[in-house]
Design a protein around this nucleic acid. Sequence first.
DNA 1: GTCCACAGTATTGTATCCAATTCGATCCAA
DNA 2: TTGGATCGAATTGGATACAATACTGTGGAC
Lengths: 253, 253
Amino acid sequence: MTNQSQPGAITRSNLRTRTATGDEAVYAELYDAILEQRLAPGTKLPEDGLGEIFGVSRTVVRKALFRLAHEELIRFRPNRGAIVASPTVEEAAQVFEARRVVESAIVRKVFGAITPEGLRRLKDTVSEERAAHERGDRAGWIRLSGEFHLRLAEIAGNRVLADYLKALVSRTSLIISLYERPGNSACSFDEHASFLIALEANDLKRALTLMERHLEACEAKLNTEEQTLSRDLAAIFADDARGGALADNAAER
Amino acid sequence: MTNQSQPGAITRSNLRTRTATGDEAVYAELYDAILEQRLAPGTKLPEDGLGEIFGVSRTVVRKALFRLAHEELIRFRPNRGAIVASPTVEEAAQVFEARRVVESAIVRKVFGAITPEGLRRLKDTVSEERAAHERGDRAGWIRLSGEFHLRLAEIAGNRVLADYLKALVSRTSLIISLYERPGNSACSFDEHASFLIALEANDLKRALTLMERHLEACEAKLNTEEQTLSRDLAAIFADDARGGALADNAAER
DNA sequence: GTCCACAGTATTGTATCCAATTCGATCCAA
DNA sequence: TTGGATCGAATTGGATACAATACTGTGGAC
């Protein structure tokens, strides 16, 4: 709905989408694209080009880019523009650790705040996750799998923590898109379901353990060695059998 | 180098800080001013005015303001510009809760990472805090008191958590400036010193307790009832003996 | 043939300009 | 005198224009 048209040629013949602010739309598009892994890490985000695509000026594109940069989803290289961020292995580990810290606290709070209504919504989310997974909707599944954690945070009732978790979940998605093993789904909805059983049984200790294990499992499924290598230019040059496409990506960084 | 000269008006005789990027300088100035409580909550931050003061255009001022807004230190009112944020009582409580969560985790990690060098630097910070306090340097004391926690985070070695704590500490400073009781210093360096003793004795349990208590004490020293009232216009109108300055402040919101 | 230098191109960083909105004040009418 | 409406000043939101910087490709010298 935000981006129909953009035939490019006539430039800005695109009518303004009546979205309230304008930059909000650009931000949302890029955000979704990064989270759903349609924009790979390292992809360049030129201000002019994005402005053309969305029918807005560079000013509003920059506004959106700043926001994404603050959330560490993209990175500004001085005088060289923005690219989709490529979190290092170390940073990935720190993000997961931060998540364990925050989500433990959230689980504790959830146990004091959960309502039947809230529980139902959590179950619905898991159902949606499962449905998306079964219908092969990878993008939707990624989004929903993060949303489960976000809803938990919402129930916990601390907006400051919830906002932070949202940022961490975004970064997690990016990390997964970088380090995911081909056939290995990173964040399993089964584990979400198990967690809900413990929640319904009011078993806090078990819920905490499950959440901790869940996050550790997500992290463990990642492939943190080879990717590190493939992003090291020296390795690429050494292994000259590599194709051009991958090299392009790596060169961005 | 980017911004000398431009003959123009007599204003802007203010000397240029030779900071590299420009917006960084504006950001830092405003950030410090808010944290040191030279800019009270509710103060208007007009883009033009700030541009004049710092000798840059509105563009770069806006850049700095966006950053501050994202950190929740200022607030944008649509079409009405930015003001220094006035966190609500509820938000204040949530910020403190988030700090307890994050700092607990940091303390645990510090116990696994502390070095003699690190301990020395922590002690130095407390000394500086005490010195600033004794010499009546309120601004410096506020800054150092936050810096203690930041150095702890640095030692813990998780940059993601450390960055988040930095944001939380900033917001805490703002909250204190809003809700502080007149004669009651909010964050006591004595408690920092006690914590270091527990750290040096390798007494994790005690350190955790002390940190928790320290944060609770900071929060408890605040005056969260009257301020709420005084920001309620009804109360201001009822109590017409109030001065004009405060009314101004309240009107901003 | 390889390396360095230089120029051209593209893109960002910053400043200025114009339109849109809001707040405040004055004026008129009841 | 009070209520309302309209006009005006001030300020933001957004777009364009200009300057500075970094990449690309070509050409010349060793």
